[in-house]
Design a protein around this nucleic acid. Structure first.
Length: 114
DNA sequence: GTGATGACGGTTT
DNA sequence: TAAACCGCCATCA
């Protein structure tokens, strides 16, 4: 395809790594995808994400755990519905910090705990 | 080539 | 706690 942006595939692949029932921030996805500081690119990539990949775009939100869409928006309502179907409870337009995906920190916390 | 925009982030009021 | 401000980078007029 003419609009083949290499970084986008990277971003999609990273978003696909988010476990079910967990959420990640745009900045975190950008960082894991090897694109620090390009959080906006993640949003762009999600907009270009083909449905064949089934990218869980709804598991990606802002760094403050709020949805990237204005409350009441059609997309925001859809995202809220998808998250709740996965067990992620939302308070207005925000999710619980407990539902954040923390790959490295989770293992670190496990080691510190024991 | 310049300026404006955006599914963002972090800091400051 | 919420809102405003600035910075960042790719895309578009």
């Amino acid at each position: 395809m003419t609009t083949t942006h290499p970084s986008y595939a990277r971003i999609w692949h990273t978003v696909l790594q988010i476990p079910l029932g967990k959420v990640a921030s745009y900045g975190q996805i950008a960082d894991l995808a090897g694109l620090p500081g390009r959080a906006r690119l993640v949003g762009k990539a999600l907009g270009y994400a083909p449905p064949e990949l089934a990218v869980p775009w709804h598991r990606v939100l802002r760094s403050d755990c709020s949805l990237a869409f204005p409350a009441g928006s059609a997309m925001a309502l859809r995202q809220r519905e998808l998250l709740q179907s996965e067990g992620v409870l939302l308070n207005n337009n925000r999710v619980r910090k407990n539902d954040l995906w923390q790959p490295d920190l989770m293992e670190l916390l496990f080691k510190l705990k024991y």
